[in-house]
């Protein structure tokens, strides 16, 4: 398996919504993540990035394709095997308010996994581990007896992280884990995630729409549009030499904290919104919004092609530039 910890190949997930209506949430997506590294997955809402993340935790079962984690195909495993998978793969959610059970104390929330997996027979051992986890994420041991509503958003996200770490997983899917937080708190959480990666050799799938934070945390970045990857490669390559018109537009839309630059530079304006993912037209999915679109783009969907190193782009227009680009 050439050492790739996570390997997703040709993943497809179609949802049936109404009569003969098919929503192609994930359509032929392939990527891999090396152990101890981070893949950033970016895109607008509704592009399918969360659906991809949920497949890794086997919340969804893929319609087609394979998901290999640590060499083992998990795409069609049984319920019981899913439970075993939870020891390897965990998830951190966006909304720190909705993702914690408000009837449980923090200790119960974190300890629930120990009950399910019948770990720690002795109460003391269990309590010690919960305390240890709370301290790892920067809370204190006495917080175990409090309820989620007594905490601020940033603290709750820490509780969510402690819960994810409880079973010492190897892969954590961070689904917009910092989007709901204030800037200063975001930095605290990101620092913590980076530190845990270093000390526990964790692998992350970091799903976000905040492009600047992804650039900071991710080794590789994948850009998704309407269920398919449009660009994928090392973060420096994707951010430094974006090749797909969508990536260019997305990067250009991020406002920078520099008023003079903001007033002087002209953005690449991406008109309109994401088109309907139900029964999409043939051809490139970005066709309707693309400024560089040619006739071919409306007819044939472009495949993901290498344009240097491991930098891949799904765009007909980028083909010609193949020669001049070197990363």
């Amino acid at each position: 398996m050439d050492g790739k910890f996570v390997e997703v190949s040709n993943l497809k997930k179609y949802f049936h919504v109404g009569k003969r209506q098919i929503l192609k949430a994930v359509d032929d997506v392939s990527f891999s993540i090396e152990r101890g590294s981070t893949l950033g997955l970016v895109g607008e809402s509704g592009c399918g990035k969360t659906t991809v993340g949920r497949h890794l935790c086997r919340i969804y079962e893929p319609d087609e394709g394979a998901i290999r984690i640590d060499g083992r195909d998990i795409s069609h495993i049984s319920q019981r095997q899913c439970r075993e998978l939870a020891k390897k793969v965990q998830m951190i959610f966006q909304d720190p308010y909705a993702s914690l059970n408000s009837f449980f104390t923090v200790g119960e929330i974190i300890g629930e996994a120990f009950t399910i997996h019948k770990m720690f027979r002795s109460v003391k051992e269990r309590r010690d581990r919960i305390r240890e986890l709370l301290e790892i994420v920067g809370l204190s041991a006495e917080h175990a007896n409090r309820f989620p509503h007594e905490f601020s958003g940033g603290q709750r996200q820490r509780i969510g992280i402690a819960r994810a770490l409880a079973l010492s997983p190897e892969l954590i899917v961070c689904d917009e884990a910092i989007s709901a937080l204030d800037v200063s708190i975001q930095a605290q959480i990101v620092n913590m995630l980076i530190e845990f990666q270093r000390t526990m050799n964790l692998t992350y799938l970091f799903i976000a729409h905040d492009l600047s934070m992804v650039r900071h945390i991710a080794d590789d970045t994948a850009v998704m549009y309407l269920g398919a990857l449009v660009e994928y490669g090392a973060t420096d390559a994707v951010y430094g030499h974006p090749a797909h018109p969508y990536t260019k537009g997305l990067l250009s839309a991020v406002p920078t904290p520099d008023p003079v630059y903001e007033r002087s530079h002209r953005r690449i304006v991406m008109e309109g919104e994401v088109s309907d993912p139900i029964n999409p037209e043939p051809g490139c999915r970005f066709y309707a919004r693309c400024r560089e679109a040619e006739k071919l783009c409306g007819e044939v969907a472009p495949p993901l092609k290498k344009i240097g190193g491991n930098h891949m782009v799904a765009c007909h227009a980028c083909k010609e530039k193949e020669g001049e680009r070197s990363t």
Binding site: E44, L211, S252, A253, V254, V269, E273
Partner: peptide, 11 residues
């Protein structure tokens, strides 16, 4: 909103 929509609304 998403960054792309944010940019549109701010403009």
């Amino acid at each position: 909103l998403d960054v792309t929509l944010q940019a549109q609304i701010l403009d």
